[in-house]
Simulated assay, not measured.
Amino acid sequence: MSQYSVADMMVVAIARRLKNNEKVFHGVASPVPMVATMLAKNSYAPKLVYLNIAGGVNTKPKKLEKSTDGPELIEGCASMFTLTDIFDLSARGELDVAFLSGVQIDVKGRLNVSAIGDFNKPKVRLPGGAGSAVLVPTVKKAFIWRTKHNKRTFVEKCDFVTTQGNIEYIFTPLCIFKKDEEGLKLDRIFKNSSLEEIIENTGFEIRYDEIVYEEEPTKEEMDLLDKIDPEKIREIEF
């Protein structure tokens, strides 16, 4: 067993689920998806097409920075595009994976990044949906990540539904949920956690077919991860 952090586990788990020839996009404030996509591109899925909000296609940055919208993310790229192009690509059914997140995520797999409480008089006004309202319904697979797993985040019903649609997986520090016709179902548990901890920290009933643990990161995966991200940018979301 290799030594690894929660961030390492999330990044590796995400990367394992990206496939060759998929067009994969991440936006701003996305260190975990950024590093995960680069890990997949350099190991499991070398033919993956990596797209980022900075406009780079298959970029090869010399060094990762904290921003996921910086100029280094167009270094060595094969070509460039605009964010409008990404929305068009998704609307045409040609974007395979988009990474998004939510402040509230409910049992049906709906996301809230708009407001906590009554929308007209909210307790907290959130930043809003930005591209998520377009991408989640149109992308083939939305991969959702959230670096906090508690009852404030995972709720029975969102206070406001900013977007819903083609969610495939939700990755947290404790586990992986997969969305089916009924809503979210527990898919994998990380070995740093347990079913009891997940139940205790989730605001809805946990459905599952069987208890399955995600394999821990291997030494090879950790060595490559540290080569790609030696400054551990992946840790800054935690």
Rank of each mutant, 00 (worst) to 15 (best):
M34C: 09
M34T: 09
V35P: 04
T37N: 11
T37D: 04
T37C: 04
T37P: 06
M38N: 03
M38V: 06
M38R: 14
M38F: 13
M38W: 07
L39M: 07
L39N: 13
L39P: 13
L39E: 14
L39K: 13
A40D: 12
K41W: 01
K41D: 06
N42M: 14
N42H: 15
N42K: 15
Y44G: 07
Y44M: 08
Y44R: 04
Y44D: 09
A45C: 08
A45D: 02
P46D: 10
P46C: 07
K47S: 15
K47Q: 15
K47V: 15
L48D: 05
L48G: 03
V49Q: 14
V49S: 13
Y50S: 15
Y50E: 15
L51C: 11
L51K: 00
L51H: 05
L51T: 07
L51S: 03
N52M: 08
N52V: 07
N52Q: 07
A54P: 05
A54Q: 06
A54I: 11
G55T: 06
G55V: 01
G55S: 10
G55I: 03
G56W: 10
G56H: 07
V57G: 02
V57D: 02
N58G: 12
T59I: 06
T59R: 09
T59F: 06
T59C: 13
T59K: 08
T59H: 12
T59Y: 08
K60S: 15
K60F: 13
K60C: 14
P61A: 10
P61Y: 09
K62T: 08
K62A: 10
K62H: 12
K63Y: 11
L64M: 12
L64I: 14
L64R: 01
L64H: 00
L64W: 03
E65V: 15
E65D: 12
K66I: 15
K66C: 12
K66G: 12
S67P: 07
T68E: 11
G70F: 14
G70E: 02
G70T: 05
G70Y: 08
P71S: 12
E72L: 00
E72W: 00
I74V: 15
E75S: 08
E75L: 02
G76W: 14
G76V: 14
G76K: 03
C77L: 10
C77E: 06
C77Q: 08
A78K: 14
A78V: 15
A78D: 15
S79V: 06
S79E: 08
S79Y: 11
M80H: 10
M80S: 11
M80V: 08
F81L: 03
F81N: 01
T82Q: 00
T82H: 01
L83P: 05
L83F: 04
T84D: 14
D85Q: 03
D85V: 04
D85R: 02
I86G: 01
D88N: 09
L89Y: 04
L89K: 00
L89S: 03
S90F: 02
A91Q: 12
A91H: 10
R92W: 06
R92I: 02
R92F: 05
G93M: 04
G93D: 02
E94N: 07
L95I: 10
L95S: 08
D96S: 06
V97I: 10
V97P: 06
F99P: 03
F99I: 09
L100C: 11
L100T: 13
S101K: 10
S101N: 09
S101A: 13
S101D: 00
S101T: 13
